[in-house]
Design a protein around this nucleic acid. Structure first.
Length: 598
RNA sequence: CGGGAAGUAGCUCAGUCAGGUUAGAGUGCACGGUUCGGGACCGUGAGGUCGGCGGUUCGAAUCCGCCCUUCCCGACCA
């Protein structure tokens, strides 16, 4: 490709408040924004995405995946049958076709896969299968942000496993688990797998694959000793030993003007962790249906983990209760607790910590009053005890007790064990050996191509521009001809032709602009290798070879093709070594996560 | 959805507080010339519904109202 012909120029100036790696993608001419969270890919961006697609295809096929193509526009009826028509908010774009039939723009494809399976799978002999596709999704996100990190329209590799039982599902899940490390490594990314919330997907087990970065929007807890890793939404911690002390008699105590746990603790001279913090939420289990009051109880020094609360209550929508809603149930804001409330009117969810502590301080549901010697089981209605408070950095690891580290991460992929919810709802059943109808057991696995590219740009750049791994770069070689001296041009043309003939993909800067411009553009676009031809190099019957972030050296024209090929092979070898290094702990990690076997 | 900021040339931005000839710069683009290994320099030129609608005024990029769009923080979310 000749730079003089390229669609999409480099830019000098882009908005200053964007993520730096995203600025580079914009400046290098990889993409252009059309609307909030909606981007076009220019030729360079499209080629990089094509590289990613290649890696995805190869690794999905390596675990037995078969590529399919499903519709973006789907009948709303399918989503009504799965129940997600009601569960998902406006993130799901709906419209009616000319005949007034409800339609949706696909945000994911579990329904369609289940519908396909209903027709295509009839016997246990038709299982297991893994199908995948690579196409765009649309999710009308409330707030797109950070370039390609959170967009509304995005390319996704989504695969789905179909199995006869949980054993099969675990195998497919584990295969994806290992493949996802490989995919990231081949793109030059180190990643971590963390336990995650199942969210709108439903189902049982889920992992997210994270590129660790301070720019990430997810909060993770990682154990440096045993490797425990979880999204904060589901992270647990080792609980304190139960208090040995005996339960004392409950007593009311006047605490005027103390409406926060910290104030009460100070006034009564106890630690904030010995005060029960009660937070009221309204939990809607179906959109549009009036919700129920839920009281969340955590220690005074802790925050409520909303994902956990949502899970515990089965809520699709969770919002703080207003003072009026609290008062209607008899709860007094600022002095609130479950004491004296109608058990039929509220659901009480308490953190596991609280049941292990004795003689705490809690609200009295009476303005200006608290109670001492509050003991959860004795003194309160408790509907559920779960790990309700958010785990934070420094908390003890749930599996080994070491101090957890808090990190930020960008989620480039996730895997879900769905189970049989969709199969049952959409009639995906097969006949087993005994002639019995069984629901297909499903798994769902996604990777965001744009996010992966954004992560690669974030990991591989410097002040001058992108510095892409050879597996992701749109071209392997940037060829620069310095000046327009006929001899130089002729030699550059020869090289361009010969490299192309050797199957090497070259971006040839044939423009009549100053050398500085060409070098700056080459650095910005980030191809792994740069070749320079100039009068100076030709005087020595040579050309210059330089890695994007390496030193330049002269190589003789004679045999230059072989040298370039060797340098490219070296780059691939180094990437292979990186992949091997990234993969070396994965088998053991999978063993620890899923147990022995394959 | 709550809070904040912004919308002026292809791009990045001044000008708006304090209304007043023909609305500016840098960059990009076109043409000419000088350069020619790190975004070189000189000259000429093209390029604008000042986000939209309405209002105030003799006069609005500038003041007022409504709306749209974009970005940031939060809520939410994969």
């Amino acid at each position: 490709m000749r730079v003089s012909q390229l669609f999409g120029a480099t830019l000098r100036a882009v908005p200053a408040d964007e993520l730096f790696s995203h600025q580079l993608l914009l400046r290098a001419g990889f993409l252009q924004q059309l609307a909030s969270g909606i981007f076009s890919l220019l030729p360079l961006g499209a080629r990089s995405q094509e590289r990613i697609r290649g890696i995805l295809r190869a690794e999905l096929e390596a675990i037995g995946g078969q590529e399919i193509a499903m519709p973006v526009i789907q009948p709303g009826d399918l989503w009504q049958r799965s129940g997600r028509w009601q569960k998902v908010d406006q993130t799901l774009v709906r419209f009616q076709d000319r005949r007034g039939r409800d339609m949706v723009v696909a945000m994911t494809h579990e329904e369609v896969v289940a519908d396909l399976a209903a027709a295509q799978v009839s016997s246990y002999r038709d299982l297991p299968r893994i199908v995948f596709q690579i196409q765009t999704k649309f999710r009308d996100e409330p707030r797109p942000r950070a370039g390609l990190i959170r967009t509304r329209e995005f390319w996704m590799k989504d695969s789905y496993s179909l199995d006869r039982d949980l054993e099969g599902l675990r195998r497919a899940y584990r295969a994806h688990f290992e493949a996802y490390f490989k995919i990231a490594a081949r793109a030059g990314l180190p990643v971590a797998a963390v336990l995650s919330d199942v969210g709108m997907m439903g189902g049982r087990m889920a992992h997210e694959f994270m590129y660790l970065s301070e720019e990430g929007e997810d909060t993770l807890l990682l154990c440096p000793r045993c490797g425990y890793a979880a999204n904060q939404e589901v992270a647990e911690r080792r609980l304190d030993d139960p208090d040995p002390e005996a339960e004392l008699e409950l007593e009311e105590v006047e605490t005027p003007g103390t409406t926060t746990a910290a104030e009460v603790a100070r006034l009564l001279g106890v630690g904030t962790q010995r005060v029960v913090k009660t937070v009221g939420y309204i939990a809607e289990t179906q959109r549009g249906v009036p919700g129920r009051l839920v009281l969340a109880l955590v220690a005074g020094d802790r925050e409520v983990n909303l994902a956990r609360l949502r899970q515990a209550t089965g809520a699709v929508e969770l919002r703080p209760a207003t003072e009026q809603e609290l008062a209607a149930a008899g709860a007094v804001a600022g002095y609130m607790s479950p004491r004296g409330l109608d058990p039929a009117a509220v659901t009480v969810v308490a953190d596991l910590d609280l049941g292990r502590r004795r003689n705490l301080v809690a609200g009295a549901n009476r303005a200006g009053w608290h109670v001492r010697n509050f003991n959860l089981a004795r003194d309160s209605q408790v509907d559920q005890e779960v790990a309700l408070s958010a785990t934070v950095g420094g908390d003890p690891c749930p599996s080994c007790g070491a101090e957890l580290e808090l990190r930020r991460g960008i989620e480039y992929g996730n895997i879900f064990q769905l189970g049989t919810d969709y199969s049952l709802a959409l009639g995906a059943e097969f006949t087993d050996e005994g002639g019995h109808q069984q629901p297909v057991v499903m798994g769902s696995y996604g990777i965001g191509l744009g996010r992966l590219l954004a992560c690669v740009a974030e990991e591989h750049h410097d002040e001058r521009g992108l510095a892409l791994p050879i597996s992701i770069a749109p071209y392997q070689v940037a060829l620069v001809q310095v000046g327009t001296d006929p001899e130089v041009v002729a030699q550059a043309e020869v090289l361009h032709r010969e490299l192309g003939g050797a199957g090497i993909e070259v971006l040839y800067d044939d423009r009549d602009v100053s050398a500085g411009v060409k070098f700056a553009d080459a650095d910005l676009r980030g191809m792994p290798l740069r070749l320079t031809v100039s009068k100076r190099t030709l005087q020595e019957r040579s050309l210059e070879l330089k890695r994007r972030q390496g030193e330049a050296r002269l190589i003789p024209l004679e045999g230059a093709l072989e040298q370039v090929g060797a340098e490219l092979r070296l780059l691939w070898d180094e990437l292979d070594a990186f992949v091997a290094q990234q993969m070396s702990p994965v088998a053991a990690l999978a063993e620890r996560t899923f147990g022995p076997g394959a």
